[in-house]
Design a protein around this nucleic acid. Structure first.
Lengths: 337, 337
DNA sequence: GAATAATATGACACCGATGACATACCTGCC
DNA sequence: GGCAGGTATGTCATCGGTGTCATATTATTC
């Protein structure tokens, strides 16, 4: 059986409380005792039980990540970023997939907090905007940080990128290339980022003096199939767009596939842009022009805010980056209006 | 403050032990008391503290997943499969990324077990074959199940697919199409599956009476870039292969990109096959013929073995499936030897 | 009807740490 | 010399449950 604090205290000839003091680096321990305790700890290869600590103390040294996202790449980045920060902090990470729309969400979150006593929670989109979850967390007084929340920004600390600006940048890039008819594929309506990206697209058109044409804007669900469907509709138009900007890479992949199927050359006959810079983006043919979302860094920053936070909401905005690859180019004929 | 078992016992007018019995569905509780307790629980919205349970009892109702895998899709599938089973069991899941080659692996695993008291551990490749981790688990007596282990099969329960058979099937498919010169890209040397897939490839050639040509076999690392590099080498050969079988989809994507870059038509001039059936496979152009690895089901089964196991190693093998898409076809000229 | 077994309930210690508080020992200062 | 205040250490209750054991009640058997 593993050594407990009692074994250590016996071996060192001190009280368990003194051992506890040494363990936690408290003041008021003489150098002599500190040394004896440390030697006993080393000798017994003693590991304090996290469980007992939680029960007795205040901190659990565990945080939870609540997510509901169907992009493995995104979650992986998020998880990796958080984990990196946790490692530095000596904190464990509990993964909690969930369903942002579930009527049980509040209960699930409540159970998570009550049962595990996590010190804090990180929410990723779209759970960031599930009011049931937020209410449950507020009620229980659990600190939480949101990654890319869409609404209610004052409610908690958060990290985010500027989705509108990014979409604006990409759209402007296409306009600069000479495109005048730019299709846009909306993201999943549950994600607030979808709306922001759409707004950025529209703002860029507006600034360039191009009219916003609803027929060039199609709904999407952030998945491959919806990208295909949207592309089919757009390319069936009497005067199809010369460029299509999809709200994420998966949908852009769908656009590419439709184009290949129709024998449309990319980027000569059609420019395609995505969003996220997932691994997929560089593995497609042609490699996708897209927006690099600093996902891992966002996650890392979120964990930092959680650890260092003092209750006052802080917002951190991280910069995105346009990644220009070969799926975009000037349209074949610049004379088109 | 949250209700505790004491509040419930007071509200129901019974001892805490009786509440505990009801909570755990133990025998020997009268219907009347059970009802009173259940009502009190409902009324107070009582959630037993997992932490206290762990400390007092034997089970922690937590398991951990230790992984070190650079494929987000794979991990996501694994995590989802395990989570599904955990949900049924009311068990929480701790995610523990790690580095299979790290000299600290044994310590990390030891700390994980000691500190969290997880009931068991699931290992995914390649940590499945990191002897430091296995030794640490054995020493601490922690039950564990491995997903697709490569070595030492008798050592623990495990779930796996038949990698050799799958690669054999795919190779046989290419041979049946008429291919005689089939390139092969090896997987990451750390993963034992790599070796098995290669063996399956070779066995299929052998059975068909085709000679095994080392020049058609290139190393790879399971990533896109190594797929590109291997494809370039293969296609530069004086007599290049008419088909390339990559040990996973990412590398197959690399092959497709090289082919596109060189203007090689797929599948007319070159057939390409992958392995795993990741999301990527169906999002590429042309969609990839590949092997569907039952990752999620493997993970689910692994969790089941962990929960239901009684210490006796059990091995479960799940069936794979050939997914035929449009990246493979008969070679242009069947006359080639 | 007494002995035995099965059922039902509670008292209490305990899991392994930390928190609150008590106590003892030094210093330094009036 | 006595007292305040910082330093060092220990005692004991406590966190919120479960395990063990004792005991009371009811059912079964001969």
């Amino acid at each position: 059986m593993r050594a407990t604090i009692k074994d250590v205290s016996a071996a060192a000839g001190v009280s368990t409380k003194t051992v506890s003091r040494v363990l936690n680096g408290e003041r008021y321990v003489s150098e002599a005792l500190r040394l004896r305790v440390e030697m006993a700890v080393a000798q017994l290869d003693f590991q304090p039980s996290a469980v007992a600590r939680i029960l007795a103390g205040k901190r659990s040294n565990q945080i939870a990540l609540i997510y509901d996202n169907h992009s493995p790449h995104y979650i992986h980045q998020i998880q990796t970023g958080i984990w990196e920060r946790c490692l530095e902090q000596g904190v464990r990470l509990l993964a909690q997939p969930s369903d942002a729309g579930s009527p049980n969400l509040a209960r699930e979150v409540g159970e998570l907090i009550d049962q595990t006593r996590v010190d804090g929670v990180i929410l990723s989109s779209p759970v960031t905007d599930a009011s049931a979850a937020l209410e449950a967390l507020d009620k229980l007084g659990a600190p939480y940080v949101r990654i890319s929340p869409g609404t209610d920004h004052g409610r908690s600390s958060s990290v985010s990128m500027d989705d509108a600006k990014a979409a604006d940048d990409m759209t402007s890039h296409l306009i600069a290339l000479g495109h005048r008819r730019i299709g846009f594929i909306f993201g999943h309506p549950n994600h607030t980022a979808s709306d922001l990206r759409h707004f950025g697209y529209r703002r860029a058109l507006d600034r360039a003096g191009l009219s916003y044409e609803p027929k060039y804007v199609r709904p999407g669900l952030f998945d491959f199939a919806s990208g295909e469907a949207a592309a089919d509709t757009l390319l069936d138009l009497p005067v199809p767009p010369t460029a299509i900007f999809a709200s994420n890479d998966d949908m852009a992949a769908g656009v590419l596939t439709v184009a290949h199927r129709r024998g449309i050359a990319i980027p000569q006959d059609l420019s395609v842009a995505g969003f996220d810079d997932t691994a997929l983006a560089s593995q497609l043919w042609p490699p996708l022009t897209t927006v690099r979302q600093p996902t891992r860094q966002l996650a890392y920053a979120a964990a930092s805010l959680l650890f260092d936070g003092d209750g006052v909401p802080v917002h951190r905005r991280l910069p995105h980056e346009l990644v220009l690859r070969s799926s975009t180019a000037a349209p074949r004929s610049r004379s088109e209006a």
